[in-house]
Computed example of a mutant assay.
Amino acid sequence: MRYYIEGNEVRAENTAKPYTQKSSAVNDYLKIIVDDPSVLDFGCGKLRYSDTLVKISSRVTFVDSEVQLNRTQAVRGELTSVKKYVEDNYDGCCSIAYENLAKHDEKYKLIICTNVLSAIPCKNTLDDIVVHMHRLLMQNGRVIIVNQYRSSYFKKYESGVKWLYGYLHRGLRGVTYYGVVDKIQVEALLGKYNFVKIRSWYVGESLFTEARVALV
């Protein structure tokens, strides 16, 4: 996604990391999930965890912005697009642009959202993401949100402009946003849209939060 803030264009798609920079904590967590019938990867980026996800589910839907899915870039060692890579390599799986997600109404047993909240400098978009998660999650499903609640890199961003949960920072590739979303903020965002926390825990600088839809 691209955001325009105080005259600056923030290209959130540039924060996506390649599969060679997987978080071992995230990957190890995903590998213990067995036989989930349907998974939605919300903010899939450059398919950082796709190989693990397709091993635990035969139906994975990868969601990201239209520009992230369709631009030509290095995806898992190939010069291609995320959309084409999914089509060519993962039978039974698909990709959907965030801009078209309102038209999508399939339900999922598991929705994962890894290192996405910290890259979004727009409160309305953060709210919209949680609304979509609530709408697309099965009643007995769960959401897994992973984000950095602190960062050893953060000091360099503090020279920028304070914004939302972090800072806008001007670098060689233009203006970027980096937020650090803590446990209280994650739980408040989920609770606002009728999610109930199952559990949360820390691994290094990452916060893991599992949640489900509140029972009516």
Rank of each mutant, 00 (worst) to 15 (best):
V54D: 15
C113W: 06
V203D: 14
P121S: 13
K31R: 09
G45F: 06
C122D: 15
A119G: 05
K83A: 08
L164H: 09
I5K: 02
Q148G: 09
D35I: 03
Y3F: 13
I144S: 08
L40C: 05
N70D: 12
V60M: 10
G77W: 03
D51R: 00
R142V: 00
C44F: 06
L40G: 02
T176I: 03
Y49A: 06
C122W: 02
T80Q: 10
Y193T: 03
G191M: 06
G191L: 06
Y90T: 00
Q148I: 03
E205Q: 15
V82Q: 11
K183W: 07
N140H: 15
N70Q: 06
E87Y: 08
F195K: 01
K109L: 05
L168H: 01
L189F: 13
R76K: 10
W163A: 02
V186C: 14
E106K: 03
Q73W: 09
R76I: 05
L110V: 02
V39Y: 11
T114A: 08
A102R: 03
K55E: 13
S206K: 06
Y193P: 11
L189V: 09
A211W: 10
R71A: 12
D91F: 04
I5M: 03
R76W: 10
K123D: 15
T52F: 10
V175Q: 04
G171D: 15
K84L: 09
Q148W: 07
V10Y: 00
N27P: 02
D35Y: 14
F62C: 10
A214H: 01
T209D: 13
I198Q: 13
Y90N: 03
T176Q: 06
D88L: 08
G204L: 04
K123G: 07
V116T: 15
I112L: 15
D41F: 04
L47Y: 12
T114P: 05
A102T: 09
I198A: 13
L79K: 11
S152F: 13
V131T: 07
L136P: 01
V130N: 13
Q139W: 03
Q73G: 04
R212Y: 05
S152Q: 15
V82K: 08
G45L: 02
C122M: 04
T15V: 04
V130R: 06
A74T: 11
Y85Q: 06
L40K: 01
C113A: 12
L110C: 05
L101N: 08
V86I: 00
L117M: 09
V203K: 14
N124V: 01
E9V: 07
F42V: 08
L79D: 14
E210G: 05
V116F: 11
W163N: 02
R212D: 13
E87M: 07
N194P: 11
N100T: 03
R135Q: 12
A12C: 05
H104N: 10
K22G: 10
G191F: 07
P37T: 13
K46M: 09
